[in-house]
Amino acid sequence: MTTQHTQKPIPVPDEASAPFFDGAKHGKLMMQRCKDCGAWHHPVRIYCDDCLSPHLAWQQASGKGEVYNFALMHYVYHPAWANEVPYNLTVVKLEEGPVMETNLVDCKNSDIKIGMPVEVAFVKLSDDVTVPKFRPAKKR
């Protein structure tokens, strides 16, 4: 087996997503926000789907949200995940409105509950790429 097959694919930032990945490197969850109507967006888009404005600006989001839904992947689609199944696929609803298809870290599968509060946790994948994931929120 080659290394290529045993490593998870690492995201490749492109021009459109650069502010998102730059922010992640510095511990900030960045999202686009419509300058005209204020709606928050994720993932990257060209037009606001509420008001069709093309004026979207990057802004730091709170990084707070709740588990909107989750499932546990048992099937190994890719050898890099062979020792991780079952792993969680968690959809987080952010305070700002958008949903993110992510994973919960620092949380056992059996502890995941719909509605539980979560907060962003950054995971460094390489010198160039850091990604946001989520963990159970610390008691406030």
Partner: peptide, 29 residues
């Protein structure tokens, strides 16, 4: 399910990194 597909650029690549494969996930949700 796309286990062998190339990594799409940008944020979609993060979804693949997070292990979201195929339609099964969405209907499990």
């Amino acid at each position: 399910g796309g286990g062998k597909r190339p990594t799409p650029p940008g944020i979609l690549g993060m979804k693949l990194h997070n292990g979201y494969f195929g339609a099964n996930t969405w209907y499990a949700l």
